[in-house]
Design a protein around this nucleic acid. Structure first.
Length: 105
DNA sequence: GGGGTGACCCAGT
DNA sequence: TACTGGGCCACCC
């Protein structure tokens, strides 16, 4: 079988979803992968994480956190500051996922 | 072709 | 709550 889809399409789709996360809400890498799986047929939380590390600079990357509420390595302070400013609650070093997790309609 | 790596995730202990 | 092991998948030697 040949080309399933252009890798750039997947990257753009990820960034597109991140841009749609409402202010004050957060989405996990896994949730994004799951949402896109319906359209691309595959994907993984790991891939989304890699894509965010490389191309997340142009979107609200801080609204994307790990499934357990932890913010991205090396950016904990910035993420916490930006999220807090939007009204997101923290429980210690993690985001209160139960209160702010979001998923596209 | 083979093996290591990573802004992940989940179940088990 | 913290740590471990297995699974995941694209990338880079």
């Amino acid at each position: 079988m040949a080309a399933e889809y252009d890798p750039r399409d997947y990257i753009e789709a990820v960034l597109d979803v991140v841009e749609r996360i409402p202010k004050g809400r957060v989405m996990s890498y896994g949730a994004i992968a799951e949402y896109l799986a319906a359209r691309f047929g595959r994907g993984s939380a790991r891939r989304v994480g890699t894509i965010m590390a490389l191309y997340g600079g142009s979107v609200p990357w801080y609204r994307v956190v790990a499934a357990n509420g932890r913010t991205p390595p090396g950016h904990e302070a910035a993420a916490r500051r930006l999220l807090t400013a939007e009204g997101v609650m923290f429980r210690g070093e993690r985001v209160d996922m139960a209160a702010h997790a979001w998923f596209p309609d």
